[in-house]
Nucleic acid binder design. Structure first.
Length: 137
DNA sequence: GCCAACGTTGGC
DNA sequence: GCCAACGTTGGC
């Protein structure tokens, strides 16, 4: 199966990009939404994801890679919820803001905008490439 | 099983 | 601080 792309949201006040870069990787747990859980469970080792700062910033700041997939959420006693392990791959040369994404017709169907509350979303390969090219501009 | 009420998230 | 979107809960 070919590589898929994702987007993971975090409030910088709770766990930001700087923290992830300093930690060198982390277990992505605590997700309590079923759609997001399905996305976590669909992830494979080697898949990549954008790291998005919600609330403060509202921008994509970096790229992460899934280093461990199909985990149970270690903080969950019920066995319902899922987790993955991620590591930072690189910081974007320039963050891509939500405003820019919304303004771009090529990204009008992106899940980040269509379902703004979803904390773990899939990114289509075309959208992935588009956002990467915006980060270089 | 339906739906109104309520809680939470996150953008504005 | 407000509100829209969505999920969950509880009465019927």
């Amino acid at each position: 199966m070919s590589k898929r792309y994702w987007l993971m949201k975090s409030e910088p006040a709770a766990y930001g990009w700087d923290r992830l870069a300093r930690d060198g990787g982390t277990v992505w747990d605590g997700v309590r939404n079923h759609t997001a859980k399905l996305n976590l469970q669909a992830m494979k080792v080697g898949d990549q994801a954008f790291f998005y700062h919600s609330v403060t910033g509202k921008e994509i700041v970096g790229v992460v890679e899934i280093t461990r997939a199909g985990m149970a959420d270690p903080k969950d006693d019920t066995g319902i919820w899922a987790a993955v392990e991620i590591k930072p791959v690189r910081t974007l040369e320039r963050p891509v803001t939500l405003a820019e994404i919304k303004a771009d017709p090529a990204l009008k169907d992106i899940e980040l905008v269509r379902q703004s509350r979803l904390s773990v979303a899939e990114i289509r390969p075309k959208e992935w490439d588009r956002i990467l090219s915006m980060a270089k501009a």
